[in-house]
Amino acid sequence: MNATAAGKIDLEKYGSLIALGTLFILAAIIGRPYFLQIENLVNVMRQASYAGIIALGMTLVIISGGIDLSVGAMAAFVASCGVLFMNWILQASGGNETLAIAGGIVVMAMIGLLAGALNGLLITLGKIVPFIVTLGTMSIFRYVSLQMANAGEFASHSQNFGELGMAKLFSLDIGVGVLSLPLPVATLFVLATILGFVLDNTRYGRYLCAVGSNARVAQYSAVRVGSVRFWAYAINGLVVAASAVLLAARFNTVSTPNFGLGFELDAIAAVIIGGTAMSGGRGSIWGTVVGVFMLQIIQNMLNMAGLSPYLQGVVKGVVIIASVYIQRQKQ
């Protein structure tokens, strides 16, 4: 009896990992001979990480029973302010790159936190539905950025910031290719570890699930529902800022009409594939990480196989629906 129960739990816990493994093998076959090349695998991880980092924050928001549509536009806004501030420090300090980058990152983190907090306040104090609030702030963040840049670009004047975007924590030539760990991928894993710990092992994490699954019951159990939900959005803002820093550094420029465009949809898709319930109350950070990589592997595999990009979008849609369908069956 115990054994079967354990088996069931294992299947539930590792089901998404098994799916990822199966997909990986499928990708190796369909995308041969390119998919398994080390360079490609590193590319896949890095390509997945920008929207992937945002998906981590989105997981908390969705577990709390909400949604954040503003993340892509928020990333553009945060990055625009950050690059402007960085350029200003560079000029004011006579070209002190380290100071400029450090200052830029701090400013981006603060603005991200504030932007997320704005969403959180409007939702909790303002008592407006999250979908509406973030639909509104999505437009606000995007168009304030466009206004600031006159719809153009903010180019960073710091050479080192651009190098930071391409930075690798280590790089090892293993004969068949160069194995490396790009900074955004490392950031994804570090943030996933922290947020995973917060969600699974802290009081805040338990409250978050309680609020998402039934806010009224949580309230009667003396959980401060408003504050719990507020912090989900604020943390999400901070996480968005991390992604914005990395992406801005990668391009070393912020193109206001395009920066972070469509990230909200990619992030939500990854969260859903990762097994987090859209209605809130239940979910997992590492599930989201699996979802992030699954989406990117599918895209990379089809790209390598030379499938028409329009059909790639179709496959992506089918996978999202199918994975939710399978998870529904399981319940």
Binding site: Y34, Q37, E39, N40, N43, Q47, Y50, A51, L247, S255, N258, F259, L261, G262, Q299, N300, N303, M304, P309, Y310, G313
Partner: peptide, 17 residues
């Protein structure tokens, strides 16, 4: 064909592979 610039960067990286 890509829908946004992030996708485009991925596409170019894939072509280089």
């Amino acid at each position: 064909f890509s829908g946004n610039v992030n996708q485009q960067v991925s596409d170019i990286e894939d072509l280089l592979v």
